[in-house]
Design a protein around this nucleic acid. Structure first.
Lengths: 226, 226
DNA sequence: CGTGGCCTTGATAAAGTTCAAGAGCCGTGG
DNA sequence: CCACGGCTCTTGAACTTTATCAAGGCCACG
């Protein structure tokens, strides 16, 4: 019960007529994944895509020697795994539940059929993919053009912005995961957090980080040094 | 003369009825850019997108201290600059003509209008954006998980595949640009090309690169060392 | 023939990774 | 209630990779 309501709250489906929401409810598959469970792996055939209803999902790549790069972390309401739906190929990366997740799975054919009949659904999906391209652009910029302190500063400011400018942040992921998100390793992240504390930019206590000098962080994010 | 034919050959518009091709021809703006000319800059408002008809276009990011990361190089037939069309924001990166280019510009509103009436156009665009996401995934993987020799090996194999397995490659861009594409600098690229020659993997002569040991390159691309 | 662009090479320095060890934390079970 | 094992995080030292700085070579074009 409540599937239609759940679907209606997904931004991707905003503005859809009730009739189409019902159609979606007919084709959706409700799935639950446990923390640490693999949702799909790079190279698997993708016969549809997912929307997170509860929980948190990471999309990541692995190098042969075990280093992980997180590409994205999806929260409730966000769709993922759409790429093969439209290219007809395999998933380009892996997906894993970071905690217990409830996911809605939308099979490819039914969804494409629906898109053909509903331009606003197509435009919603185009907007989502475009936003994702924008994020990837930033990720590439960070990885290639900034060094780790700059990436970390940018991430902290991003968190602060998301929390309406809050100075007191609390990491919702472990520092190890944060390292993987920033394209580095826990040791390096740890050292840089220490250095930034020493310079009076931030204050850390476990998963809590207090921003002491937002301007200093901005300079760091922009220029790569203080 | 010829505009409709040009438009009809663009993969994005494949399968469109003639009537819609004519509509497109009505809204398109034909533009020419000289080598080195800026097409748009990061932060500019995007009121439409481009399709390359002739020439070559690079999409890139710059760091404050001048290092460049090429995100993409577009050849004739490929659309670019679509992100702001669907998110309503600014261009996330810069675009510059690498040689004299003829571009078709499609204004946003007319195009969105057309998409609403034509699901197959929407699906074509979704496929293109999805492919681009896939490419970005590979770029991130390369930048974060591989070191420069691995990236170079992967790029050479990609060129070889594109040329139906050809062993004799010819770079269509300068080595400096290749360095920027691989997320490094010309000096480093030069050294690594030298090292790879010394190991008998390739043979270089100016812009020509001959692949001597494809298996060796695959190992390098996969594992980061021979 | 000189000038500017592009590429190469060498010496040096910086940033990040690896390896190793240890500290803090927490849930489980004796 | 406390001890143990596992996990995350931190710190140190050596090492690797890459960037930086500087200089010189090659080549096309005027």
């Amino acid at each position: 019960m409540g599937i239609i309501q759940d679907i209606a709250t997904i931004p991707l489906f905003r503005g859809l007529p009730d009739k189409h929401l019902e159609d979606l409810a007919m084709i959706v598959v409700d799935q639950v994944f446990q923390r640490g469970q693999v949702i799909f792996s790079e190279g698997d055939d993708g016969n549809g895509f997912f929307v997170a209803i509860t929980g948190r999902v990471k999309i990541y790549k692995m190098s042969p020697d075990g280093k992980e790069q997180i590409l994205h972390i999806f929260e409730p309401g966000e769709p993922f795994g759409e790429v093969p739906v439209f290219t007809g190929q395999q998933f380009p990366a892996n997906a894993e539940a970071m905690k217990e997740c409830r996911l809605y799975f939308f099979p490819r054919d039914s969804f494409v059929h629906l898109i053909k009949k509903n331009p606003s659904l197509a435009l919603n999906m185009l907007a989502i993919l475009s936003k994702r391209l924008r994020r990837f652009t930033m990720l590439v910029e960070n990885l290639s053009l900034k060094e780790v302190p700059g990436r970390l500063a940018a991430y902290l400011l991003y968190l602060s912005d998301k929390g309406e400018g809050a100075r007191d942040l609390e990491l919702s992921i472990t520092k190890g995961q944060l390292a993987s998100l920033l394209g580095t390793i826990p040791e390096t992240l740890s050292r840089i957090l220490g250095k930034m504390s020493g310079q009076g930019l931030i204050e850390t206590e476990g998963p809590k980080i207090k921003i002491l000098d937002p301007r200093g962080l901005e300079d760091l994010a922009e220029w790569g040094h203080l």
